[in-house]
């Protein structure tokens, strides 16, 4: 029996909904239950966005993850990873991009932001933009982060690959391969650094 409570974080337009769809599809394919709550509307336009994603072999009650009980925070932006720490459980992991998305005048010193992240007991921090670029396009930074989270998701890696093939099925083989490469690169990073 497996359950994962995941906070997905980022800035509007960074692609957290795609991550949610991929994990969600993979979970449903394995007959798991799922609840995912997301933010629309005024919270976009470059504002912070977060989504609660819960997958479990048991029926799930709440759409919202209680504070202090998330198994992981997956973030495409380092400052956003920190914003949701109150949700993280004591054993929980933070998997985050270290590349800042600086669209506010008072963005804190990036070194201090990264300092806060590396102080956390369980963290994976990588430059997903650079990794994605090597894999073919910076647009796949979100998938690199998903790959980095893959070893913590409690599901077979190929299930995520299948989900990517499904979610991007209309976009052509090139895009699919690019995303599979990005996923792999992220996953490799975590396996090396865990």
């Amino acid at each position: 029996m497996m359950k994962r409570d995941i906070i997905l974080a980022g800035v509007g337009g960074q692609g957290i909904i795609s991550i949610a769809s991929i994990i969600g599809y993979a979970a449903l394919e394995q007959g798991m239950f799922l609840k995912q709550s997301e933010v629309h509307g005024m919270s976009q336009r470059g504002g912070d966005v977060m989504s609660n994603l819960r997958i479990s072999h048991h029926e799930i009650a709440s759409d919202l993850i209680p504070f202090g009980q998330a198994d992981m925070i997956i973030s495409i932006e380092p400052l956003e990873a920190l914003r949701y720490l109150p949700y993280l459980s004591a054993q929980g992991w933070v998997i985050t991009n270290i590349r800042p998305f600086n669209n506010i005048p008072n963005y804190p010193e990036i070194d201090q932001v990264l300092g806060e992240i590396t102080r956390l007991p369980h963290h994976i921090a990588l430059d997903a933009d650079a990794t994605a670029k090597e894999a073919g396009s910076t647009k796949a930074a979100n998938i690199v982060i998903l790959g980095a989270a893959a070893p913590f998701l409690g599901m077979a890696y190929h299930k995520l690959e299948d989900a990517i093939r499904f979610i991007f099925r209309t976009k052509g083989d090139k895009i699919i391969d690019l995303n599979l490469n990005a996923l792999k690169a992220g996953c490799d990073f975590t396996e090396k650094h865990m």
Partner: peptide
């Protein structure tokens, strides 16, 4: 949980340096 008299749970506090990121005109 609090209303039911159960123990509340909380992760880590948000570090002080975290500032708001309000939505803005594109």
């Amino acid at each position: 949980a609090v209303a039911l008299g159960k123990a509340d749970t909380f992760g880590l506090p948000v570090p002080e340096l975290v500032v708001g990121r309000p939505p803005s005109l594109c």
